[in-house]
Simulated scan of single mutants.
Amino acid sequence: MNFTASFQGLIGGVLIGLSATWLMATLGRIAGISGIIGTLITTRPRGDSAWRLAFGIGLVSGPVLALFIGGLGNVAGAPNEVIGQPSGGMPLMLVAGLLVGLGTGLGSGCTSGHGVCGLARLSVRSLAATVTFLIAAIITVFVVRHVMGGNV
């Protein structure tokens, strides 16, 4: 068992939980990425943009730091890569991102809003959304690996 990876996952989960709790306690907002960034881009709320922008910068700065600081974990297949190339290629990645964006609109939220914050608030709607996300992910991996013969 890789205790370093497990410890990194534990620390990451604790930090996500603390940041979601901090956002709710200080601003009364749910840390749902699609809602935070989507509202910033589409409606540009007055007086409510600074924290949304800071949240977005924080999301991007983590992976950027991981690129420049070694030893933060390797999710790529090669030792000298930090992130690596998308396994299905860039066009598939763009289509997948578009579908995720459409899905968050249809589901009125994303995995962070429903899965982390909604479940913590014992929201039945968030439970239904999270179960739907998981079922869709399981089916997608099964189809790609076993029906299409891909490597995800």
Rank of each mutant, 00 (worst) to 15 (best):
L98E: 00
R52W: 14
T42C: 10
G28K: 10
T132N: 05
F142L: 11
F55P: 09
M93V: 06
P63V: 10
V131L: 12
G28F: 12
D48H: 15
A76Y: 02
T21V: 04
P79Q: 12
W22M: 06
G47W: 09
V141E: 12
F7Y: 07
V141D: 12
I36H: 08
G107P: 03
G12T: 12
L127H: 03
S49H: 14
L15N: 01
G73I: 03
A120F: 09
I11P: 04
I36Q: 07
L67A: 05
I139L: 12
S87L: 14
G13Y: 03
S123F: 14
A120R: 15
I30G: 08
S19T: 10
L98N: 00
A76M: 02
G101W: 05
A25Y: 14
T130L: 06
S123V: 13
H146C: 09
V100I: 09
R29N: 03
G113F: 10
L59K: 12
M93R: 10
A76R: 04
M90T: 15
I11S: 09
A31W: 08
V75C: 07
A31R: 09
A31S: 14
M90W: 13
P86L: 02
A129P: 01
G71T: 14
H146E: 10
S108A: 12
I11T: 14
R125C: 05
I11L: 15
I83V: 07
F55S: 14
